[in-house]
Design a protein around this nucleic acid. Structure first.
Ligand SMILES: [Mn+2]
Ligand SMILES: [Mn+2]
Ligand SMILES: [Mn+2]
Ligand SMILES: [Mn+2]
Lengths: 220, 220
DNA sequence: ATATATTTTTAGGCTAGTCTAAATTTTTTA
DNA sequence: TAAAAAATTTAGACTAGCCTAAAAATATAT
């Protein structure tokens, strides 16, 4: 039996909200993320449980089953591959591709995904630095630092973003902070934790704590 | 207001069934093409009429309005561009792409279509020889011959197919009859209208009337 | 021109996915 | 630990898109 567009979205969101350690996800959190009401979520949870895609006990929150996890990861693989296609082949900006990929991720052909993957050269990361699950469903989250964890005078590589909002990505574009950029922390202000950073050995700029908290980086 | 997946399919099918001269399409013909029951078609026709997408008078059949025609042609444009992508970029066979394109044609981003079109080099025809509407919605059907209209000893170019069924396309593959092939009619059998044809000056083969009736060709 | 056959519409009902309002369970606070 | 607050589920209802069965309109054949 095929999973619907809506079911796939629930599974993907449960995956995201339960994080690395597969924590229980609450009804309200799902209502928030799906932009529906808690009552609607409850209905859907019963259905997903009946299909064996989630573990669900009333009032206790949910986690994905093995089977649900597999479905979620396939959807994530498709989402991220399509994002690579849109940026690398069609010339979209990284701030423009998420909503289109939300649609493309539900196109249901295994062979399409594998041919797309090959066409793109089997990319390991999407335009936001998120890892792309392989064809077997292996997804390994690299353990990046958040820029707030970096000390003054350290040099790090920009590897990804936590916030995917177009407005944030556009702000990074205007600041010249792109994937792979070298960021050197020159100074951190005690008062508001804003920082001066030098990008690629070039211009130095101020970034707010809000920005630092959403930048994933790696020591070189 | 956005049109649903289902509404778009109805409009596309009405476009196909009403042909060049915009003939009235019957409820039963739509039920057949959509694999639904006549009663369901009637429901949908009332809805499409309310949205101003079709002309509908009870018991009289339907035609597209200007607005409905525009929507239908956009869907056809997307379908055919995605088919080109699947064949030219991903390496699918022309017999494998229709069902996937049926899904992709409903992805709703104008800018996506235009970037895809540019990426593909603004193709004029899809992998089956069908013309691709331009960005303004102009769709001009070239007037090809059907192979049954060709006389013995004439040489023609293979330009397209009427039947898009995978089994037919695979049959053509096995016969070496591809788009652009030169077909010379060597002989027509009075009895069953089967024909001997020479492909690209190479092998001669027999084709049934059933095949001839589905080949679109052009005099050179 | 009437009877018969065919086509189309109407009536009533179903499922998926959503909603609001009310009931219930769990959690927090005093 | 009992009362209050918060979270969750249940009850009942709505729309889109589909169905079957019956009624009505149109087309065909005698
Ligand atoms: Mn995304
Ligand atoms: Mn992404
Ligand atoms: Mn097609
Ligand atoms: Mn085609």
């Amino acid at each position: 039996m095929q999973n619907s567009f809506t079911e796939e979205n629930y599974l993907k969101i449960i995956h995201a909200l339960s994080g690395r350690d597969g924590l229980e996800v609450s009804t309200n959190a799902l209502a928030e993320s799906t932009s529906t009401r808690a009552a609607s979520v409850t209905d859907m949870l019963r259905k997903l449980a009946d299909k064996g895609l989630i573990h669900y006990k009333k009032y206790q929150g949910v986690t994905l089953t093995e089977s649900g996890e597999r479905v979620a990861i396939k959807v994530i693989r498709k989402h991220r591959l399509w994002e690579v296609f849109l940026v690398e082949k069609l010339g979209f900006g990284w701030d423009e591709v998420h909503d289109i990929a939300e649609e493309l991720e539900h196109i249901p052909s295994e062979v399409l995904v594998e041919k797309l993957d090959a066409f793109l050269g089997h990319p390991k990361f999407d335009p936001h630095g998120d890892p792309i699950p392989d064809a077997k469903g292996n997804l390994t989250e690299p353990d990046y630092l958040i820029l707030t964890d970096v000390q003054v005078s350290e040099k790090v590589l920009m590897m990804g973003v936590l916030d995917h909002a177009p407005s944030f990505l556009q702000h990074l574009d205007r600041s010249g902070i792109t994937l792979g950029a070298v960021i050197e922390v020159k100074e951190i202000n005690e008062y508001d934790k804003s920082a001066s950073v030098q990008i690629n050995g070039g211009p130095t700029l101020f970034i707010s704590l809000e920005v630092s908290k959403n930048l994933l980086v790696q020591r070189r």
